[in-house]
């Protein structure tokens, strides 16, 4: 599989603060690649370096197999991006903004392409409205439209669902999945809404304090990690005491509904179930949740 983006040992410091500390990851063609990390982990700095907005202190960025530093302008023509807030020229209309940005890519004026982009994000009816009259969600959608205006092969989106309502989030998810499936566009999506990432990303990297914690296939990583387990047993108190005694120092807790909760590896879950059953405790429910959120919280 062709690598669309390769980041090798990237470093960037601001004074004495090291924002990006030797991170490496790669994105394959056709991926929807989740770029995850807590606030201040170095996500935005890394993305800005990849897009040439910042210069790295060390390391290498290769886009479509070529070094970014030597071919920046040409390579950026194949990329669409929305970085952090969707800021536009507020005194221009949505259409005029896209027309302007279309020209910056070096494309000749194409009103149909602009209207198609606006149509795609549900803003066609507001094409002639000044951006200053737009809500945050509408600006976000316009941000997606500008990233797609020149039919890029790779789209980098930083927090694309910020400011969107639930329907907007769903529409955005469907749009990304459709573009990925139909046009083969590769996406790198940074978001703190982990549920969304779990629904769209096939591969991901998790970074924290400027370092890569893990990179790989989303489903494999989540299933290999600890699961959130909720046990409803009768009698609950005895079950809880038994588990605490059997696993001293473990993370078993009991909530107000007398449900026992913990994070366990898949193999541990089976052993716990057997322990309770062998002790004559009725295990009424054993709910296992494999979520990206749980996995992310364990990592970071």
């Amino acid at each position: 599989m062709r690598k669309v983006l390769e980041v090798n040992n990237l470093r960037k410091s601001f004074g004495t603060f090291c924002a990006v500390d030797g991170i490496s990851f790669s994105v394959n063609e056709g991926d929807i690649y989740g770029f995850l990390g807590p606030n201040g982990s170095g996500k935005s700095t890394s993305i800005r370096i990849v897009l040439g907005l910042m210069k790295a202190d060390a390391g290498e960025v290769r886009l479509f197999g070529e070094q970014l530093t030597n071919n920046r302008a040409r390579l950026l023509g194949r990329i669409g991006a929305l970085i952090e807030r969707p800021d536009f020229y507020n005194y221009l209309s949505a259409f005029e903004n896209l027309r302007l940005l279309q020209s910056y890519v070096g494309l000749s004026y194409d009103a149909n392409a602009i209207m198609n982009s606006l149509e795609m994000v549900g803003l066609a009816e507001r094409a002639q409205s000044k951006v200053r009259t737009f809500s945050q969600g509408m600006k976000q959608r316009l941000g997606i439209a500008q990233a797609l205006i020149h039919n890029p092969e790779l789209v980098i989106l930083d927090e694309p669902v910020n400011g969107l309502d639930p329907q907007g989030i769903k529409d955005m998810r469907n749009l990304l999945l459709k573009l990925n499936a139909d046009q083969g566009i590769t996406f790198i999506v940074s978001s703190h809404i982990l549920r969304e990432m779990e629904l769209i990303a096939n591969r991901m990297v998790v970074i924290s304090k400027g370092k890569v914690l893990v990179e790989g296939n989303v489903k494999e990583l989540i299933s290999a990690g600890k699961q959130h387990v909720t046990i409803i047993a009768e009698p609950a108190g005895i079950a809880f005491e038994l588990l605490q005694a059997s696993y001293p120092g473990s993370s078993f807790t009991m909530n107000k509904l007398l449900e026992i909760e913990s994070h366990l590896l898949p193999s541990e879950t089976a052993v716990v179930n057997r322990l309770l059953v062998d002790a004559g405790i009725a295990v009424q429910q054993l709910n296992v949740r494999n979520s990206l959120e749980d996995y992310f919280l364990q990592l970071t």
């Binding site: 907005l53 302008a73 800021d87 500008q146």
Partner: peptide, 13 residues
Amino acid sequence: RGTFRLLLTRPVS
């Protein structure tokens, strides 16, 4: 305005 992010992520030197 934050519009440098829009401009400088385009193929413009």
